[in-house]
Simulated scan of single mutants.
Amino acid sequence: MTATTGLTIEGCVIVSAEGNLADADRLMPDALKFPGDQAFFAAALDRADLIVHGRNSFEDQPNSPLRRRLIVTRQVAGLAPDPSNPKAVLWNPAGASFEDACIRAGVSSGTVAIIGGPDVFALFFDRYDTFFLSQAPHARLPGGEPCFPGVPERTPEQILSAHGLCPADRQILDADHDVSVTTWRRG
């Protein structure tokens, strides 16, 4: 739990063999969609009190409209209501703190789920309590969008490790496709 906010910060992403979370068009292709991972992801979001993502990331699930969220964007100076979603706040980290954004979203305790994209994940590298890294080692997305800044020069695991996270356990989500999730915890 972060000392300054009383919130637990969790990250969640699935990546291809190259460490990409999207294709060259910045869209999540079917090649990264597996029922086991999608169920794991939905459960993580269902237990979250706040979702944080960029304008190109979203979860498109039945419970999506019910979730409070921060949408990271440079289109506002600091904080603004999202005109298309009453449960969302537009947040520019250059103009407002994360703590202020959480207060504006009406969340002062509980779990915050960070779901991307790369620059949004990077905002929280030193604040994650837990990061769920799902991997689809047979999925190929050449020229795709890396999950974190610094990939492919370094692997996602090397980046998480460099920010003080350690692999704690691994779970198979789809045995037929070798899809797994590794839970990384602050060490």
Rank of each mutant, 00 (worst) to 15 (best):
A3F: 11
T4Y: 02
T5W: 10
G6Q: 08
L7P: 02
E10G: 00
G11V: 11
V13P: 03
V13I: 14
I14S: 03
I14V: 14
V15H: 10
V15R: 10
S16N: 09
E18F: 12
D23R: 07
A24C: 09
A24N: 09
D25Y: 03
R26I: 13
A31L: 13
K33V: 15
F34N: 09
A39M: 11
F40Q: 06
F40I: 02
A42I: 14
A43G: 09
A48G: 14
A48D: 11
D49A: 10
D49Q: 09
I51S: 04
I51A: 07
N56P: 02
S57E: 05
F58L: 13
Q61K: 15
Q61T: 15
P62G: 05
P62Q: 11
N63L: 14
N63I: 15
R67M: 14
R68K: 15
L70F: 06
V72I: 07
T73Q: 01
R74I: 10
V76K: 06
A77W: 01
G78F: 01
L79E: 00
P81S: 11
P81I: 08
P81Y: 05
P83E: 06
P83V: 02
S84R: 13
P86I: 10
L90F: 05
N92W: 01
P93V: 00
P93W: 01
A96T: 00
A96F: 00
S97Y: 04
C102I: 08
R104L: 05
A105W: 00
A105N: 03
G106T: 08
V107N: 05
S108N: 14
S108L: 14
G110M: 08
V112T: 03
G116L: 08
F121V: 11
A122L: 04
L123V: 05
F124I: 05
F125R: 12
F125A: 09
D126T: 08
T130S: 13
L133K: 06
L133W: 09
A136E: 02
H138L: 09
H138T: 15
R140E: 11
L141K: 07
G144F: 07
P146I: 11
C147V: 15
V151K: 05
V151A: 06
P152N: 04
P152D: 07
I159R: 02
L160Q: 03
S161V: 10
H163P: 01
H163T: 03
G164I: 01
G164V: 01
C166T: 15
P167D: 00
R170I: 10
D174K: 04
D176Y: 06
H177G: 03
D178S: 12
V179I: 10
S180R: 13
T182F: 13
T182N: 11
W184G: 03
G187R: 15
G187V: 10
